[in-house]
Design a protein around this nucleic acid. Structure first.
Length: 113
RNA sequence: AAAGUUUGACGAACAAUCGCUGGAGAUGAGAUAUUCUCUAGAGGAAAGUCCGGGCUCCAUAGGGCAGGGUGCUGGAUAACGUCCAGUCAGCGCGAGUUGAAGGAUAGUGCCACAGAAAUGGACCGCCGAUGGCAUACAUUGUAUGCACAGGUAAGGGUGGAACCGUGGUGUAAGAGACCACGAGGAUUUAUGGUGACAUAUUUCCUGGUAAACCCCACUUGGAGCAAGACCUAAUGAAAUGCAGUGAUAGGAUAAUCACAACCUUAGCCCGAGGUGCAUUUAGGUUGGUCGCUUGAGCUGUAUAGCAAUAUACAGCCUAGAUAGAUGAUUGUUACUUCAUUGGUGGGAGGGUUGACCCCCAUUAAUACCACUGGAAGGCACAGAACCCGGCUUAUGGCAAACUUUCCAA
RNA sequence: GCGCUCGUGGUCCAAUGGAUAUGACGCAGGUCUCCGGAACCUGAGAUCGAGGUUCAAUUCCUCGCGAGCGCG
């Protein structure tokens, strides 16, 4: 995933947490906010409570992979952060894919058909 | 066959599609942009951060104290609290394994409860030799009694531990006071060993505790890659230069006012508010580059050594991220387990060193072997963050050597 | 990266190396009451794990596990 699609700075995260809106399902939480770019930007947050370094890295990589596969469905002009909750650890790729699409649709970040 | 002990190596593979990071090449005027090609890309513990070192900066004439650390011997090492080989002690039938293993004879402290007493102590007890008092005989003493002075450490059965233990001599009663045998410690000498130490021997001594204070020996400056070096926006600082028109003041300077210009007030006008500009210097925030991977490196061979390890020669270059790359999906295979069998072929015996176990009873069926087919799993612990050497902890199956017991020959 | 502190019944705590491990709240049973509460009485329930030193460890030492905090 290219750098311009990623949220990196601590200030960006804090800004979205403070001024953005949030939705959630059982496995994920999404914070999102309009931006002035012509593409979306993604941040991923996995707490230390979720597991050890291997588990956290796996969650991050799988989420990156899922979002990359659905880049064309995601509406531009959004910054959003995906936060992983504990039940997501035991899901496989396809279940996570469904769950993430569900939560993004709830947040109305996905493009309408 | 069962139960163990030690050591060692390993930590699945391949393909397709879609991606990530570094490097090289092409594309491109050029760049850290774009596109394409090639190539490299996690571990045995990368983990915990428990030790040690390299490296960097700061401090430092030299020496000592304090504080910290370590603590049998010899060796290895860059160094270590690590490793190897030994000694001694403990544990285990054994293979083996564990040990902060100097000093209690430098000094101080502590040893609850119980017990007379927990290290210069006398409560009960024993004795009354010597001294004292009393009585009797008698004359300068003898005998008996008292338990006053005093002597004593045998007995008290409490405790984890009772002034080394047992037996004797000795004595008024007793006592390492003396003797014999024995336990432990220090010490002298001899022998063996580099040494710890072992064996014999001389002399002296005898509670435990130093992971209590302490003494002795050795060792130790502090901080950490967010170390540190370099480049650099914005804002503010200093210096220099310039600064529209008009007015005031002045030696001179933007010192002040008005207008103009520019900015904000959602697009325009009015109104309101605000504003010197450029260059250089120092500082070094944000951001970036270096530090950053050629190293006490890896592989192989030979030599030295019981070994840890060292030396020589040859070959090799093998991750470098920074919201942090090394991934995802699908398929196949190795491998494991299950169903105890669907099929084909072999087949009177099969497996086993053997004891023994399984199966069947000769037209046939079964065990077993080979090939093929089905289902499930395809794993555990775990992710480099400056780099190494160890330790510790987590974890999957495998192999080898050795030990003990049982059974058969 | 470096450093510090703590871990004791269900909860909050106490403790000189000396064990029957303290107290409060809570829990259970009883007394009282027509019933409940309050009060009173009684009881159960714990030293984070593994080793070591010591006659004896919650306490001392080592390693591990978990929690919290500080500095850069």
């Amino acid at each position: 995933m290219e750098n311009k699609f990623r949220l990196k700075k601590k200030e960006d995260f804090n800004f979205i947490y403070r001024y953005g809106k949030s939705t959630a399902n059982h496995q994920f939480v999404v914070y999102y906010k309009h931006n002035s770019n012509h593409h979306f930007r993604l941040g991923i947050s996995v707490s230390k409570k979720i597991g050890n370094a291997v588990v956290r890295n796996r969650m991050r990589r799988v989420i990156k992979e899922i979002v990359r596969h659905h880049t064309d469905k995601i509406a531009p002009n959004y910054d959003f952060i995906i936060i992983v909750r504990k039940p997501a650890v035991h899901m496989d790729y396809h279940q996570m894919e469904k769950s993430i699409l569900h939560v993004l649709r709830k947040a109305s970040i996905l493009k309408k058909k």
